[in-house]
């Protein structure tokens, strides 16, 4: 490569960076909308939100002597990116399991979009529009990537036993689903894996696949359990872009994440778990200074570093 083109490349990259910085400087429509909605909300655990899509009450789950989850009250504001943070074993994944019907709580009631869904089976909760991904990915290994995604579409006529024999009755819908799946594969940089078995994918690719598959359901709310774990930095950046775009389109996103830079850059609201309980919630900047969060999760070193801009 000649010096000239190298220079050019660097210059290009510089402008790209500038654009990115600019974008970060001015918050997107969704971010502004979320900030406005959450403006008057206090930073106390269990605080009520103006327009909650998910409301959970008195949720508890015990494993033998361990109390994995003990949440008195938690609301998630519609159309926001809400981050769940907390130390390992704090009960974040267990909380996901409970509200999505993959685990049964010892007690608790929760409602989604105004409907009481306590105790509903997991597949029904997914059909209501609340879809989750798993911390340990569940790729359907002997299905191709495309099939993995196509499976996610809901209301498929051809999924009924008798209708499945009448190809003309579902062929058009199938073509639409395929087109949507291919579009999503492209968005997640997986087009080259289209016809490969999902079992041949790397760990990070599986994370991407699972998120794309969940989006095929067209959920109103998506729960992402560490979606960025094992995904390379460049792709993490674009993934964050996708997540923000989804929020801007009106979707509600709850994500578990340990990377504080990620949390600070995209979340509208942060909920901190420790030992099964919600110990703090609030806007990212407030959470970073919250003593309870510092003690339980961030540690003093990390928080001081964050607070000092120099």
């Amino acid at each position: 490569m000649s010096d000239d083109s190298h220079e050019e490349l660097l210059a290009q990259r510089e402008t790209a960076h500038d654009e990115e910085r600019q974008r970060e400087a001015e918050p997107s429509v969704g971010a502004r909308r979320a900030a406005a909605a959450l403006a008057g909300v206090a930073n106390v655990p269990g605080v009520a939100k103006p327009d909650p899509i998910l409301v959970a009450d008195d949720m508890s789950r015990r494993f033998g002597g361990v109390t994995a989850v003990e949440v008195e009250h938690l609301e998630v504001q519609r159309g926001t990116i809400t981050a769940l943070i907390g130390p390992n074993g704090a009960g974040k994944s267990t909380f996901f399991n409970l509200i999505t019907g993959f685990d049964k709580p010892n007690s608790g009631r929760w409602s989604f979009d105004g409907k009481d869904i306590s105790g509903a089976p997991s597949f029904r909760i997914a059909r209501h529009g609340m879809v989750r991904t798993f911390q340990l990915t569940k790729a359907l290994t002997r299905l191709t990537s495309l099939e993995n995604l196509m499976l996610g579409a809901t209301g498929q006529r051809g999924e009924r036993l008798l209708a499945s024999l009448l190809r003309p009755s579902w062929a058009r819908q199938e073509a639409d689903i395929r087109a949507r799946a291919e579009e999503l594969l492209g968005r997640f940089n997986l087009t080259h894996m289209r016809d490969e078995f999902a079992g041949t994918m790397s760990g990070g690719q599986r994370k991407l696949l699972e998120m794309a598959r969940a989006l095929m359901v067209k959920p109103d709310m998506i729960l992402l359990d560490e979606p960025m774990a094992g995904v390379n930095p460049a792709l993490t950046q674009s993934l964050l872009g996708h997540i923000e775009a989804l929020r801007d389109e009106g979707m509600t996103i709850v994500l578990v994440e340990h990377d504080m830079d990620v949390i600070m850059s995209i979340s509208d609201w942060v909920v901190c778990f420790a030992q099964g309980q919600v110990i703090a919630e609030g806007r990212p900047d407030d959470i970073r200074r919250d003593t309870a969060v510092i003690d339980a999760y961030l540690g003093t070193h990390r928080s001081l570093q964050e607070e000092d801009p120099s």
């Binding site: 999505t100 993959f102 089976p121 997991s122 597949f123 029904r124 997914a126 059909r127 879809v131 989750r132 991904t133 798993f134 569940k138 790729a139 359907l140 290994t141 002997r142 299905l143 499976l151 996610g152 809901t154 999924e159 598959r213 969940a214 095929m216 359901v217």
Partner: peptide, 12 residues
């Protein structure tokens, strides 16, 4: 392949 994955996508 994985019952839970199918459930998470709304399949009975």
């Amino acid at each position: 392949e994985d019952e839970d994955a199918a459930r998470s996508l709304g399949k009975n």
